[in-house]
Simulated assay, not measured.
Amino acid sequence: MDIVQLVSDFGFPVIMVVGLGYFVYFVWQTITNKIDPAVQEMKITIIRLTDQLRLLDQDMIRLQQKVNTVLELKEKDDSKKTKK
């Protein structure tokens, strides 16, 4: 069918409403079928990365505590050596 013939038969506003309806349907299907699954996958990835970040933060805290302990022990040992 020719668009000019459709416009002359039904009128411009009716054809535009049908076109807009198709556009909304197309956008809705694209969001539902492509974007939503990708967003869900990204959420899962973000959760995994957040968990890894927490684990690394805890590891850094433990490592800092160990370093502090070693430095304290070294300082105590050095102070004992200087007193002798």
Rank of each mutant, 00 (worst) to 15 (best):
L49T: 09
E75C: 03
L56E: 14
I47E: 15
D51E: 15
V39D: 05
L73Y: 01
V70D: 00
Q58W: 06
V67N: 01
E75L: 08
T69W: 02
Q40K: 13
T45D: 09
R62E: 13
N33L: 06
T69K: 06
I31T: 07
F26S: 07
D36F: 10
M42P: 00
Q52C: 05
L63M: 10
I35F: 03
W28F: 14
E41M: 02
I35P: 02
L55T: 12
K74E: 05
E41L: 06
L55Y: 09
N33M: 07
N68Q: 08
E72R: 02
E75F: 04
V67S: 02
K34L: 10
Q58H: 09
K66P: 00
P37C: 01
A38C: 01
E41F: 03
Q29L: 12
T45M: 09
Q58R: 13
Q65E: 11
I46L: 14
E75Y: 05
L55D: 14
V27M: 03
N68H: 03
D36P: 00
I47D: 15
V24A: 14
M42W: 04
E72G: 00
T30L: 12
V70H: 01
I31A: 04
V70Y: 04
Q65I: 03
L63I: 04
T69I: 00
M42L: 14
Q65F: 02
L55N: 11
Y25F: 14
E41C: 01
V27N: 03
K66T: 07
K43C: 05
Q64K: 05
I44T: 12
L73S: 01
V24L: 13
A38P: 00
Y25S: 07
T45N: 08
R62Y: 10
K34D: 12
M42S: 13
